[in-house]
Design a protein around this nucleic acid. Structure first.
Lengths: 343, 343
DNA sequence: CTGTTAGCGCTTTCAG
DNA sequence: CTGAAAGCGCTAACAG
C-alpha cells in the first residue's frame, strides 16, 4: 500500500483522470450510474494514488457518524468476546465502526455510557443491560432521535425495541428436569439478589419444572448470591444452613456453580453424590471444576451476528416487527459430571 | 436532558444570544479569549437548547478523527477487560473514542485490523501484538503518516514505538526461584510453541534462575503448548514422557498451568506433593484449580491507563523518549497452594 | 452516463 | 474580547 506525502482527495483523482469529483465520488461508492470502465479506472487510480476516504467529510455530508455503540456489562467473558466478534464482522462488512463501553453492571455507568454514546452521535446502539438496570429510560433520547436500539442477551420485555436472546425459561426448565431425573428431590436455585430479566426467567423455568414434576416450590429454595467467582465459603454456608439439606443446586451462572462446588467440597460434601450442581452459560471454567459442570450452552458469535443484523435492518428500514422484535436463539443442555449421580 | 426536534448548531445558539458563531465555538471550546460572563451565558444556552457538538464537522475542520484504535489478541480475559477500562477512562477524559478489534492471535487478522484502522484514520493506535506477530511492518503506514503507536503487554523490543509492559524476565525469575526454594530440583517450563516476546522473556527468567541456583538448564526442559484451557491430557502426557520425571512445572500462563494440574491429577499425580505447579497472570481460574495456583499478578487497569497516557503524550507532543519509550509496571508473585510442599 | 454547484457544521485566521 | 469569512472533503440534487 502506498502512503503518499499529502492526503489524496477525490479532487486529486478527478484532476488526474480528467473527470469531475462527482464522478469519482460515485465510482468509489459503486454507484450504478457509472460505466464499468470508468469505475474501474477510478478505483485503480484511487488504489495507486494511496487514496483513503475521508469519513469525516462523508459523514458530515450524510449526517451520520457511521458508528455503532455497544454497551455491555463486562467484556471479560469468552461469551462476550464472541458476541463482539460476531457484531464486528457483520457491522464492519456494512461499513460501520463499533465503539464499546462497559457498565460494570452498574446503572450509573450505563447511564453515563449512554450519554457519551448519544453525544458521539452513534447511528445505532447494541445493549446488554447491566444487572442493576430495571428500566430503559436512559435510552429515551435515542428513541426520540429515532436512533435504533437492539438489546441482546439481557433484555427487558417491556421495551419497544427489539431483543435477541435465548429462551431462558426453557433452558432452566430443562436443566432442572435433568436434576430431577438424576434423582434430586430437594433442589435449590442460587441466583442474583435482585431478579433482573434473565434471572427472573431462569427462576421461572426452575419453578415450572418443579411444579410439573409434582415437587413443591417455595422461595426458601431460592438463594441470593453476587454470582461472581469469589465467596465459595459464603455460598456453601448458605446452602448448608437450610432447614433441610438439598441434594441438588441449580446456579444461575457457571461462576456461581463452580463456587458452590468448591465450597461444598471444602465442607466435605461430595459432588454429585451428596449434592448435584448445575450452572448456566458454558463458561470455560465449567470444565475446570471437579467434577466438570453441567450447564447450558449458547453461541455468543451467533448472538452477536443476529443482533447486528437486526440493527442493520432497522438502519436500512427493512425492519419487520413480526419477525425481528424478538429473536430467540437456540440453547442446549450440556451434561457433565457434576450432575451424574449413577456413574 | 432536552431533546430538540431539530439538531441545534452553534448558529442557532449564536442567533439566540445575538452573538457570532465564532464566539459560540470559542466559548464551547473554553477558549481563553472569551469573557467568563459570555462563556457562561453560552454554555448555559447550549445546555438548555439541547445542543451537542457535531464531531463530524469539528473533526473535518481539524483534520482529526478523534478515534483511537485498539488491537488486542482477544478480549476474553479479565486482564484485557481491565486494560480496556483503564484506556477508556483516560482517553474518554481526553475526548477520544476507542474502537477495538481482536486479532484472535493471528497475524492475518491483525494486518486486516491495522488496515481498517488506517482507513478509518485513527489518530493513534494501542496494540498488544498477536502471538503470531514477529514483526510490525504492517504498522508502517501509521509511522509514515506520523500516527503514534503504543504497544502494551506484548511488545517487540526492536520497534521504535514505545511499549508499556511488565518485567517478564524478573517475574519468571522470581517464580522459578520460589519453586526451587520449595525444594523442586527438576523444573520444566511449559510455554508457547514459538517464543514470541513475553514468552521469550519468561523463558529467559526461568533459565537465569536455574543457572543462578546451580541447576542445569537445557531445552529438553522446555515444552510447547497452545496455552489454552483445553488439552489437559496431552500436556500431562508430555510431562510424564520426559526421561526423568520433573518435580516442578512453571507454565507460561494460568490456563496452561491449570491444565497441567488437571491432567496430572487425572494420572494420579499429587500437586504439589509430587509436582509443584506455577502459572502466570493471576487469572480468575487460578483460584478455581485445586490446589490454588501460584502465579504472577499485574494490574491490567494500570497498564491500560499507562499506555493511554503515553499515547496522549505523543499526540500532544509531550512525549519524552527517555522516560516514555519503555514503561515497566510492577508485577508480584502470588503464592498459593499449588507450590507449597511443606504444608 | 457525467458535470456543476451548493452546503453539511465547525474552526480559525485576520481584522477590528 | 468579538465578528466576518473562508474552507475542511464529500455527496446529492439538478441539469445536461
Amino acid at each position: 500500500m502506498s502512503v503518499p506525502e499529502k492526503e489524496i482527495t477525490i479532487y486529486d483523482i478527478a484532476r488526474a483522470l480528467d473527470l469531475s469529483p462527482a464522478t469519482v465520488s460515485r465510482a468509489l461508492a459503486n454507484h450504478a450510474a457509472i460505466s464499468i470502465k470508468t469505475k474501474k479506472r477510478i478505483q485503480e487510480a484511487a488504489q495507486a494514488m494511496g487514496y483513503r476516504t475521508n469519513r469525516m467529510a462523508s459523514n458530515l455530508r450524510k449526517k451520520r457518524s457511521n458508528i455503532i455503540g455497544v454497551i455491555v456489562p463486562r467484556l471479560n467473558s469468552s461469551f462476550m468476546s464472541d458476541v463482539l466478534a460476531g457484531m464486528e464482522k457483520v457491522l464492519n462488512q456494512a461499513g460501520y465502526n463499533i465503539i464499546i463501553s462497559q457498565s460494570f453492571e452498574t446503572a450509573a455507568k450505563e447511564i453515563t455510557n449512554a450519554q457519551a454514546m448519544y453525544n458521539n452521535r452513534v447511528d445505532g446502539l447494541l445493549v446488554s443491560l447491566a444487572y442493576e438496570s430495571h428500566h430503559t429510560n436512559h435510552f429515551d433520547a435515542f428513541t426520540q432521535r429515532n436512533i435504533p436500539i437492539v438489546y441482546f442477551d439481557r433484555v427487558l420485555k417491556d421495551d419497544h425495541n427489539p431483543g435477541v436472546m435465548i429462551d431462558n425459561v426453557k433452558a432452566a426448565y430443562a436443566i432442572t428436569e435433568h436434576l430431577i431425573k438424576q434423582g434430586c428431590r430437594q433442589i435449590v436455585h442460587v441466583t442474583a439478589q435482585h431478579l433482573h430479566s434473565v434471572y427472573k426467567q431462569r427462576l421461572e423455568g426452575f419453578k415450572q419444572a418443579l411444579l410439573d414434576n409434582s415437587m413443591p416450590f417455595s422461595y426458601d429454595m431460592v438463594l441470593g448470591s453476587d454470582l461472581t467467582l469469589s465467596g465459595s465459603t459464603e455460598i456453601a454456608d448458605l446452602v448448608m444452613n437450610l432447614p433441610t439439606q438439598p441434594d441438588g443446586i441449580f446456579a444461575a451462572n457457571d461462576a456461581c456453580a463452580v463456587n458452590c462446588i468448591m465450597g461444598l467440597k471444602e465442607k466435605g460434601i461430595s459432588v454429585p453424590h451428596d449434592i448435584a450442581v448445575a450452572g448456566f452459560n458454558n463458561d470455560p471454567v465449567a470444565c475446570i471444576s471437579e467434577p466438570k459442570l453441567t450447564t447450558v450452552n449458547y453461541d455468543g458469535y451467533a448472538m452477536g451476528e443476529a443482533s447486528a443484523r437486526v440493527l442493520l435492518k432497522r438502519l436500512n428500514n427493512q425492519y419487520d416487527a413480526t419477525t425481528d422484535k424478538e429473536v430467540i436463539l437456540p440453547a442446549e443442555l450440556i451434561i457433565r459430571g457434576s450432575t451424574l449421580r449413577n456413574k
